[in-house]
Design a protein around this nucleic acid. Structure first.
Lengths: 228, 228
DNA sequence: CGTGCGTTTGAGTGAATTCAACGGCTGTGG
DNA sequence: CCACAGCCGTTGAATTCACTCAAACGCACG
């Protein structure tokens, strides 16, 4: 099974909102705000916290971010990984339901949500469509992960690899920006299981682990087949 | 942990769309359509299929429905259970990403999506807000289930029971409309594990299994605690 | 050259699955 | 009215898979 998250380039196309021509002078200033402040976050810095008002959207320019939740028993569940072009903080509720952190150093574009909503009131058709596209992608992403979580450890890891390959795709070589612990928390496994599964996949000649953060997909067909 | 799906009464409030006053004569006829045809489905009848165009929403009037997907290896994953007042088929994509079936005999109100969208274009503020509320609820429901699926079998079953209690709540007695197989496919477990877990919970005096379809919550505190 | 962190590997345990059999309820037909 | 089949749910025994605990490895950094 494959994690069918929106492809980064698709996302970039969808949220070119700040490139829309201004509609009037009032919204012209808003369009400027839409372009948003560029902010930087260093490794492990918090971008926003669970429960905080969801006033802003964050578009990743460079680096990688993660959203996560800490359960009452201390376990951490990662909601998703966000690569350049992805939009973070796309909540419908008034408050963020996850926290977000930079995995590596991150440049992000901060976009005020209220501005989007106001724009939405004016330019009905196009912008609503774009927002719906984004929300739809988010929903599909989450639903797909639901399907993931009922599967075996091996299937989860394979799906993760194929998804990452699709998103960062430089040929068959995948550069993982996140740690094993991040991957484990994302897939609902332990770090040991992730590690063992990767080495097993390597022994099966499906992948090659160049370094711990660089994986080469040697046999996509086999991987897809392992994916049930 | 608790499945925080939208409470039925909340949903009913949110989607009183068809009770909105007509805006003009053109939309007046649409509002009539919004009220929608009432349809009936018998046990195990398909309401819509995966991949079909998502032209309609379905509001459950009576009975229970399930959405599901069959994986390539034959496993079935249930996306959710829908009780009276709930909205089915709330997809953002053009096609349904799950199939839907009646679990018991079902009366449903069929609402044309295009009408909603057109209405949305006219009555920006209120209707968009309502639709967003619905989508938001759906998103939260799915995210919450993600959190569920990383937990133990016992935690999943407990969360399921508490969620159902919240949704059908007649005191502490819960009438389960679905089979053990449905529950298992929903929680990503086997039917045996669900059964065993329930009997264990009964031995712990947390619940009482009056009949296989009727569960009495004897000790909600204990249940919540078992929920980590 | 150590120190520390992230990752890998190993051994043992435990939880959930698989395979199998049994019990109860319902509806049908003799 | 009873007998039997079929379905659903429960229970048992054995197995498998992922987890826990523990140790070792490799790499970057001071």
């Amino acid at each position: 099974m494959l994690i069918r998250s929106t492809h980064p380039t698709d996302r970039a196309k969808i949220l070119s909102l700040h490139h829309l021509p201004p509609i009037n002078s009032q919204q012209s200033t808003e369009a400027v705000q839409l372009k948003g402040a560029s902010m930087s976050f260093r490794r492990n810095a918090e971008i926003y916290g669970e429960g905080e008002p969801a006033d802003y959207l964050y578009k990743i320019v460079s680096g990688t971010a993660r959203t996560y939740k800490v359960l009452s028993d201390g376990r951490r569940q990662i909601g998703g990984f966000y690569l350049p072009g992805d939009i973070l903080g796309l909540e419908i509720a008034e408050e963020h339901s996850f926290s977000a952190e930079a995995i590596s150093g991150c440049k992000v574009l901060v976009i005020k949500r209220s501005v989007l909503v106001r724009l939405l009131a004016g330019r009905q058709d196009e912008i609503t469509k774009e927002l719906w596209g984004l929300i739809g992608a988010e929903l599909r992403r989450v639903q797909t992960r639901n399907l993931l979580l009922i599967k075996s450890a091996q299937e989860r890891v394979v799906a993760f690899l194929l998804d990452m390959a699709e998103r960062v795709s430089t040929g068959n070589s995948v550069e993982l920006p996140m740690s094993r612990q991040d991957i484990a928390d994302y897939l609902g496994l332990t770090i040991e299981t992730v590690s063992r599964t990767l080495t097993r996949l390597e022994k099966l000649a499906a992948i090659e682990i160049s370094s711990s953060r660089r994986i080469v997909l040697r046999n996509r067909g086999a991987l897809s087949r392992l994916n049930s």
